[in-house]
């Protein structure tokens, strides 16, 4: 049988999650850009577009449930639908973090320029690269790449610690920069969380490919 009814629906589901992935990636990248380039118009755009991402999440939820209820997928089809249904809210949460970074940018951008953003660009770049690679790994069902990305989360954690300490020192040395630095601390935390979420996506990529649960593997 060349064309199954479920194939068409799985293709639509795949298209929808890739669109959501693209939109999320763009939100993170532009939120950071709005901060680094002090572009509040861009920050507002990111916040405005979060609704579109929420809408995409709803559509994917609806379609995933419909496929489960009506097509009774099994084996790889089942793992695909489950992975999509679990990755979707993760992407939506990453987009929420991008929104929070954009909100922080709106505050920081009207404060005096904090001397420099220390490791921020690198941390943001790592997070964005990890997200892009995780989505590529999902598309290609590449478990090996997913495992490599999971390892990269440590880079973000290390950067977070450096950024945290640098901002703390900045607040002690220059109390007038406290407001900006405090908001930047939140931004750093958002980026660190994005790294954790990308890791979760990669764990689901491994499940999709190998039917193996690597999350909380010490409990299995």
């Amino acid at each position: 049988m060349d064309h199954r009814i479920i194939d068409q629906q799985l293709d639509v589901l795949r298209d929808k999650i890739l669109l959501l992935g693209g939109a999320t990636e763009s939100a993170v990248q532009r939120a950071m850009q709005s901060l680094v380039e002090r572009d509040s118009v861009l920050a507002k755009q990111v916040l405005e577009e979060d609704k579109i991402i929420d809408q995409m999440e709803l559509e994917i939820d609806r379609l995933s449930i419909e496929i489960l209820a009506l097509q009774h997928p099994a084996a790889h089809d089942l793992r695909f639908v489950i992975s999509v249904a679990k990755i979707t809210p993760i992407l939506e949460r990453i987009a929420d973090h991008a929104g929070s970074i954009a909100e922080a940018a709106l505050v920081i951008n009207i404060e005096p320029l904090v001397k420099n953003y220390v490791e921020f660009p690198m941390m943001a770049q790592t997070a964005a690269e990890m997200l892009r690679s995780a989505l590529d790994a999902f598309t290609n069902e590449d478990a090996q790449l997913s495992r490599e990305i999971i390892e990269r989360d440590k880079e973000i954690d290390t950067s977070y610690k450096k950024v945290f300490n640098a901002l703390l020192e900045m607040m002690i040395d220059n109390p007038s920069a406290t407001t900006g630095a405090a908001h930047l601390l939140f931004v750093a935390k958002h980026l660190e969380r994005i790294g954790d979420y990308v890791k979760d996506i990669c764990e689901l990529n491994v499940y999709l490919r190998e039917a193996a649960f690597i999350k909380h593997s010490r409990l299995i």
Partner: peptide
Amino acid sequence: MFQNPNEKLTEDYITGRFG
């Protein structure tokens, strides 16, 4: 068998790729 069969033939059958 229904989540991750070893054989491609099994996967094809239970997912309705032939029958």
